[in-house]
Design a protein around this nucleic acid. Structure first.
Lengths: 283, 283
DNA sequence: TTGTACGCGTTATCAT
DNA sequence: ATGATAACGCGTACAA
């Protein structure tokens, strides 16, 4: 049996209500009793029961983080960002990596636990009746955090400067980015190439730069020419560097912090910007 | 105001207690009232309040997942595994990526929320008074899931067969693995080499296999020879393949499932194996 | 088979 | 400035 408010009250010789007031920093409590109560609280190592508090206050101190996209790399940094903020406001994040789950299932869980708000990475279902931060897509009627794809595409195009753009590595560009890059015309045709599975032949020559390029490769797929621009993502920075390519970086931690802050502000009924763009960087 | 048990009771013309019993599958309820009650429950979309239930039952339906190691790649798969199991037993995982947090802080949160158990990736503090599954290290008096480093080291050594072992890529081998590999002696000295930052010169030649190896490189660091064995981790499988190296794979999803199952069994007071080894695979 | 009444640990509304 | 008491929503021993 853990120590309750009643225990503290009895030990301090006051009423439960007084303990509650001390705990919540009620100003109209004499500093004498306040000190006495705090002393007992610490001595008995009393910790308020969040369930009882929640039941009484009609809020749980729980928020939920739903991550749809299994491929979301940098999840640890993202969650760390969320933790960083939520810890300061005494809210615990319940996590769901949800490729598997029906929206209705999740909803019933959230309703049951009186979750106060949701951070949803991916496409939240329509008509969510919780405070919601959507990460990744712009959602009508919800605050959203969206990668600034347009900006990224333009950075890439500018950097490419006519060279063929080649994506390699385990993380591939998503559909949105590919669409944004569709307009790009480098020299020759096939000015954008997303490798799947294996690295293009010839890519090693970037490193051994004294070698000649395959004469027959041209702009054909399957061959990497020295003039091509190589692009990788987050985790493969070492390879990008080693191969003289570029690495696209998405600030997952910062986005986690932002999402958490936005949600906290919503819970406090403050105004928040509806659409929040996050810039990539290219290194 | 959400619909409560009392609402259901009134609507169905029975007592709250009866509704509660129906909900909990109490066998001594007439099938007639049971059906009636279920009908109302569904019609009103009644969802039991987890806070009230928890307060009454003295358990919250919450467990916690603490991930210490910021570098833990495959976190999404791991969490997905945990979700998969926990969803079947109606437990919600609270997540903490905890490099930042004091153990005492975490403890107070867990006590407050009446967390039923913890899955801790990394090194849990001593004297945790929660049911605990430790992932990554063997902890006295706690059930643990540990990577089978010994086995991995031996697989690597066997595969290397005298070749120099070279780790490249953004994910590096940890201390434990390096220690296990210390005994390995390949041809020449420096038979193990962990690249940091940039890829070794010469690595590209693996792909362009018609090139000659740098004559002056020998076993010196900074140069990759054709005879070397290249090793990468999880996310960099494409590169490993492309470069004729190997990729070490740790089954994060399965470990998540295992951790969750073990914890559930502990909560049900079943016997569980104390030390659970998880094998790597090399592809 | 079902209803009554109390307890779970807080917060909030009255009093005093 | 503080105490008494009624919610909050559910489970359960006891009674019927």
């Amino acid at each position: 049996m853990s120590v309750t408010m009643a225990d503290v009250a009895k030990e301090a010789g006051v009423d439960k209500a007084t303990v509650s007031r001390v705990l919540r920093g009620d100003p109209r409590i004499s500093s004498k009793t306040r000190e006495k109560v705090w002393e007992v609280i610490k001595r008995l190592e009393y910790k308020p029961n969040a369930l009882a508090r929640g039941l009484s206050e009609r809020k749980s101190g729980l928020i939920s983080v739903v991550v749809e996209e299994q491929q979301f790399s940098g999840l640890n940094r993202f969650l760390k960002g969320i933790n960083r903020i939520m810890a300061t406001v005494n809210k615990e994040p319940i996590i769901y990596v949800a490729d598997d789950f029906e929206a209705s299932f999740l909803r019933s869980r959230f309703v049951a636990h009186k979750v106060e708000g949701i951070i949803w990475v991916g496409s939240p279902p329509p008509n969510v009746d919780f405070p919601l931060i959507a990460v990744g897509e712009t959602i009508d009627k919800h605050v959203s955090i969206v990668p600034y794809w347009e900006d990224l595409a333009q950075m890439i195009i500018k950097l490419a400067d006519g060279r063929r753009i080649v994506f390699a590595g385990d993380t591939k560009p998503n559909r949105t980015l590919k669409v944004k890059l569709e307009g790009y015309k480098g020299k020759g045709k096939n000015s954008l190439w997303v490798c799947d599975g294996t690295l293009p032949k010839g890519i090693g020559r970037l490193i051994n730069s004294n070698c000649e390029i395959d004469q027959d490769s041209g702009f054909k797929e399957g061959y990497f020419r020295k003039g091509d621009m190589l692009l990788l993502f987050n985790e493969e920075r070492d390879f990008a560097k080693a191969m003289g390519g570029y690495c696209i970086h998405f600030p997952c931690f910062e986005v986690g912090v932002l999402a958490a802050k936005l949600l906290v502000n919503i819970l406090r009924h403050r105004d928040v910007p509806f659409k929040n763009l996050v810039r990539f960087s290219i290194e």
